[in-house]
Nucleic acid binder design. Sequence first.
DNA 1: CCTACCGATCGGTAGG
DNA 2: CCTACCGATCGGTAGG
Lengths: 212, 212
Amino acid sequence: METGRTRAAIVARGVAVASVEGLEGLTIGRLAADLGMSKSGLLGHFGSKEALQLEVVDAAAAIFTREVADRATGTAPGLPRLRALCAAWVSYLEREVFPGGCFFIAAAAEFDDRAGPVRDAVAGLTALWERDLRIHVRLAVAAGDLPAGTDPDQVVFELGGVLMALNYGLRLRRDPGAPARARRALDQLIGTGPTVAARAGRAAPAARPPAA
Amino acid sequence: METGRTRAAIVARGVAVASVEGLEGLTIGRLAADLGMSKSGLLGHFGSKEALQLEVVDAAAAIFTREVADRATGTAPGLPRLRALCAAWVSYLEREVFPGGCFFIAAAAEFDDRAGPVRDAVAGLTALWERDLRIHVRLAVAAGDLPAGTDPDQVVFELGGVLMALNYGLRLRRDPGAPARARRALDQLIGTGPTVAARAGRAAPAARPPAA
DNA sequence: CCTACCGATCGGTAGG
DNA sequence: CCTACCGATCGGTAGG
């Protein structure tokens, strides 16, 4: 891994451009013009557009980790961590950490029907994030903070849906009320009520079995 | 509106290509080659790429209406219609009506940070669909089939999230279990239980007020 | 509907 | 890091 300043500047600019225009819309000529350098000078750092895209995806993952995952490390594993992760996730979209909204929601939509290393990288990173969430759902169930019988994959599926709806509400709908809706929906899924007993006593969304 | 067969064939092919490669990835040369005609012959039908994109978006909307909205018209307005619309929505993704998943989820993600007529068309059509859903949520509340105090916009927000999670689960995750998860999540939001009384008696997700 | 063409830009290479 | 260049493709036009 090189640590050159120029290289880092290229990748940083690439992340910003890709979050708005897409990873395919990130062209070498445009990026070179943005940074005041020649196309070949820029390409020399990476070798190919695909290699650049992969570095941009990795850099976006590092930003996501710093701006979302790392903000929750102070909380206890299980339900507190899960809530903190989701709160940080909403905040990350509210703060517009990437100028084009969630980098990975955009990249997932762009590459979900393609094949190749970029798709694999996006799928792998999102899978890691979902795994992290799932772990804390499991811990929450084990601790009795989520109802016994809760399906962790179902919770992660629904949490992802809420965040995609938030990204959509902010970017396409430009609805400033979207974060409040997302928080309200998250509250339904992983609660914010203070007592475990209160949650256990009511019909538990995540635990309810499929309708046959 | 022309009704030419060639023109219709171009648009139909354009819808399929755009659902996979994106509306920007739909190029005139590629489309012309697919259909065995010249670029200028193809472009003559529309005048510009943007005009073609707009026709493709409209054609996709017609397909969505036929494959989703129209399949629910036999049900009573209100909760039955809402449930039928959502069931048809899930089915439409399961059946892969578009080869690249939901045309409008993909188009929304692609154009949410751009300006211009294509973005406006996508935003307008999705707003119409959400309005349709909201109407039936309101009717359901008025009929007592959803709890009094239910926020229709909140329900529509969450329904959209479930469908985006389904599209993501099918396309990026390639998870055949995703439709079952979506149905289970929808069941939480708009129920499938047979009796209104049973729903009214339990904690109602859609009606719960924000956590201050 | 076609051929022929336009300038611009694409990703990438040669050679320094 | 650069200039200079490659063939391919982009959206679009002229003229028929």
